[in-house]
Lab assay of single mutants.
Amino acid sequence: LLPSFEIGAWTEDDVYCWVQQLVRKGDSSAEMSVYASLFKENNITGKRLLLLEEEDLKDMGIVSKGHIIHFKSAIEKLTHDYIN
């Protein structure tokens, strides 16, 4: 489970856990499981996660359009939940 809904306070480890949970919950393929490490390697914290754009995801090595859409949708939901 994630430490809190205060996404802005999430550490790199918290984001890593979130990506792992996202991959487990989704209908995503096994190749998506490597993405948790990509987020950690790129020092993505909660604040940075909320700022990620499609180009950032591509720069991190996420090239599948479907996977990018999956992440963007999940990040938008997080942003919405965080604001409300």
Rank of each mutant, 00 (worst) to 15 (best):
L1K: 09
L2W: 09
P3K: 14
P3H: 12
S4R: 09
S4G: 12
F5R: 14
E6H: 05
E6F: 02
E6P: 09
E6C: 04
I7M: 05
G8Q: 15
G8F: 08
G8S: 14
A9P: 04
A9L: 13
A9G: 10
W10D: 02
W10N: 02
T11N: 07
D13H: 08
D13Q: 09
D13M: 02
D13I: 00
D14G: 03
D14V: 06
V15K: 03
C17D: 14
W18V: 00
W18A: 05
V19M: 00
Q21A: 09
Q21H: 11
Q21R: 07
Q21D: 12
L22W: 03
V23R: 11
R24T: 11
D27S: 11
D27H: 10
D27Q: 01
D27R: 06
S28P: 09
S28G: 13
S29F: 10
S29V: 11
S29E: 11
A30W: 09
A30K: 15
A30Y: 10
E31P: 05
M32W: 15
S33N: 11
S33D: 10
Y35R: 02
Y35D: 03
A36I: 02
A36Q: 03
A36D: 06
A36H: 00
S37W: 01
S37Y: 07
S37R: 13
S37F: 00
L38S: 06
L38F: 07
F39E: 08
F39W: 15
K40S: 01
K40R: 10
E41V: 07
E41P: 00
N43G: 13
N43H: 15
I44H: 01
I44Y: 03
I44G: 01
T45F: 06
T45V: 06
T45I: 03
G46P: 02
L49T: 01
L49C: 00
L49R: 03
L51K: 13
L51P: 00
L51N: 11
L51V: 10
L52F: 03
E54I: 01
E54M: 01
E54L: 05
E55W: 04
D56V: 01
D56H: 01
D56G: 03
D56Y: 05
D56K: 05
L57K: 02
L57M: 06
K58S: 04
D59C: 08
M60V: 04
M60Q: 02
G61D: 03
G61Y: 01
I62L: 02
I62F: 07
I62H: 04
V63S: 11
V63P: 05
V63G: 06
V63L: 11
S64N: 15
S64T: 13
S64P: 05
S64Q: 14
K65G: 04
K65N: 08
K65S: 10
K65I: 07
G66A: 15
G66W: 07
G66T: 14
G66M: 11
H67G: 05
I68D: 02
I68Y: 04
I69D: 15
I69W: 08
I69Y: 11
H70A: 15
H70I: 08
F71R: 02
F71G: 00
K72N: 04
K72H: 08
S73I: 09
S73N: 13
S73M: 07
I75V: 04
I75G: 02
E76H: 09
E76M: 10
E76C: 02
E76Y: 08
K77L: 05
K77R: 09
K77Q: 07
T79V: 09
T79K: 15
T79C: 12
H80W: 09
H80A: 13
H80K: 13
Y82K: 10
I83Y: 11
I83M: 14
I83D: 14
I83N: 15
I83S: 12
N84I: 08
N84A: 13
